[in-house]
Structure formats: structure tokens, C-alpha cells
């Protein structure tokens, strides 16, 4: 947790500004890399900013701190987002962000825990993060620690069967120290989720699996914070924050565009985007 500003208004302002910085760094690193996942990194930027710069207890100076909260990026392709918040938190030097996807870089196309401190576990093959989060949540409970586990999933990702196996076991083992977040941006690679493979009704499905479901606008910082607080209060069952988001959020030329799932901005697009985000303001 970084220094918390005094009032809620100040906190929200700080996090909003931080989210803007995160978006700018994501776009810059992706443009230099020349490839990578733009849309899904931007859609979850507000949520992950709230986690790393306010909600989660973690210590960049001691990445293995036993009592830290854990963040598992189940949708591993949003690696640029994770790398940015790790760098801004101080896990490694900001300059490393320019090495994304380059030979010899610890910033692999998808996160590798053996190469980069701060990455809890390697991800990239969708559908696996929730099971891992469950295991961590069980382990933390066994050790009597009050640490929490946050797991970020894509909405397309929940088409994976393993997600539902994990949804079942999290409820079975009453993992109330676990909070899953679905980045419900409505898009996957081949199109709209409802066209590719209908996943609705998401809320009812998770409720039926025994979860406490909180539905929010995933770009409303106030809503994100209150959802994270509310999730913490839930007892005896895991929580799901169903965050309605816009893929490519923050840059109008990318917003809601399925094409920008897996391509990086061009130099020209970057300049437009930076202007729109008000880089340097």
C-alpha cells in the first residue's frame, strides 16, 4: 500500500491519476514492443490500479513477504498491465518496461514467475488462475494468515471448464479470503463473447455456484473501492466482482474494438492516444 491520501476524494483522485499513468505506460511499452495485448490490458487498468496502489498489502522491497495479499493474473495476456503496476510499485526499474517481449528480457509475452519478481505464478494458458488462487487461499487459511487473494479473469476466459471446477471448489472450501474479478469487456479474440460462446447470465451462474456476486462499472474508481471493501466483509463464501468494462478503455480508437485485442499501437496511434490521455499534464 502506498501512502494513503487523507480524504476519500483525494484517494479517488490519486487512483484515477495513477490509472492514467498506468494506461500511458502500457501503451508506450506495447508500441516499443511492436506486439502484445492492448485491449484487455486497458480494460482492467482501473481495477488493477486500485489493487496495487491502495487495496493490496504488498511490499516491493520484500516480494516474498509471507503476509502479503496475492494477485493472480489468470488472463495472463494482460501482462503489460501487470508489468506496469509492478514497475510503478517499485518491484523493478521503470526502464525495464521498454524490454517487453524482447530477447533476454524477464518481461515475457506472458508473465513468468521464475524470471520476474512480483509475478506470483506463470500464466498465459487461460482458465488456470482461479484453481491456483484457491490453493493459495487454502494455504493462507491453514497458516492462519489474514492475507487475501485476488484473481483477475477475462470474460472469454470463463468459457474454460476449469474455471467452473474452481468456482465449485472455492465455494466448497468456503474461501472467503478469495476475491475473483471478471473483466467483463464483452469481447474475446474472435468477436463478441455472446456470439462466440454465450456466457450469460454470468451473475446468476456464479451465484448458483455459491459465490457472493458484486456487479460494478469497472471504470468507476469509487465503485471499485467499495466493491473491494464489500468483498472483504463477506464470510463463509468467495466473492466475485463482475466488473463491466470497455475493452481498450481510455483510448477512443481502441475502445470496444475487437481487432485491438492482440495488436500493439503504431507510433501514430500512440501519439493520438497520449494526447487523448493527456500525457505530461
Amino acid at each position: 500500500m502506498t501512502q494513503t491520501p487523507i480524504s476519500t476524494e483525494e484517494l479517488i483522485l490519486f487512483l484515477k491519476k495513477q490509472a492514467k499513468t498506468v494506461r500511458i505506460e502500457i501503451l508506450k511499452m506495447l508500441t516499443i514492443a511492436g506486439s502484445g495485448h492492448t485491449g484487455g490490458s486497458l480494460s482492467a487498468a482501473d481495477i488493477v490500479t486500485a489493487l496495487y496502489f491502495y487495496k493490496m498489502r504488498h511490499n516491493p522491497k520484500d516480494p516474498h513477504w509471507r503476509e502479503r495479499d496475492r494477485f493472480i493474473l489468470s488472463k495472463g495476456h494482460a501482462a503489460p498491465l501487470l508489468y506496469t503496476v509492478l514497475a510503478l510499485s517499485g518491484y523493478f526499474d521503470m526502464s525495464l518496461l521498454t524490454t517487453l517481449r524482447k530477447i533476454g528480457s524477464p518481461l515475457q509475452g506472458h508473465p513468468s514467475s521464475t524470471l520476474l519478481l512480483g509475478v506470483e505464478v506463470s500464466t498465459g494458458s487461460l482458465g488456470q488462475g482461479l484453481s491456483i488462487s484457491n490453493g493459495i487461499a487454502i494455504g493462507l487459511k491453514m497458516d492462519g494468515l489474514s492475507s487475501r487473494v485476488y484473481c483477475l479473469l477475462g470474460d472469454g476466459e470463463i468459457q474454460e471448464g476449469q474455471v467452473w471446477e474452481a468456482a465449485m471448489s472455492a465455494a466448497h472450501y468456503r474461501l472467503d479470503n478469495l476475491c475473483a474479478i471478471i473483466d467483463n469487456n464483452g469481447l474475446q479474440i474472435d468477436g463478441h463473447c455472446h456470439e462466440v460462446m454465450a456466457i450469460e447470465p454470468i451473475r446468476e451462474k456464479w451465484k448458483a455456484f455459491g459465490w457472493h456476486v458484486i456487479e460494478i462499472n469497472g471504470h468507476d474508481m469509487e465503485a471499485i473501492l467499495s466493491a473491494l471493501h464489500a468483498a472483504e466483509k463477506v464470510q463463509g463464501k468467495p466473492s466475485l466482482i463482475l466488473a463491466h468494462t470497455v475493452k481498450g478503455k481510455g483510448v477512443s480508437i481502441f475502445e470496444g474494438k475487437v481487432e485491438y485485442h492482440g495488436i500493439a499501437p503504431t507510433q501514430e496511434e500512440l501519439e493520438k492516444a497520449l494526447k487523448e490521455l493527456g500525457d505530461g499534464e
Partner: peptide, 14 residues
């Protein structure tokens, strides 16, 4: 699949 993932998570807590 969930068993393997859960085992992995448990190993991450030592």
C-alpha cells in the same frame, strides 16, 4: 485440472 491448479497454489504458500 482443478486439483493440479489447487496443488500449485498450495505449493506457492510453502
Amino acid at each position: 485440472q482443478d486439483m493440479i491448479g489447487t496443488a500449485s497454489g498450495l505449493s506457492l504458500t510453502g
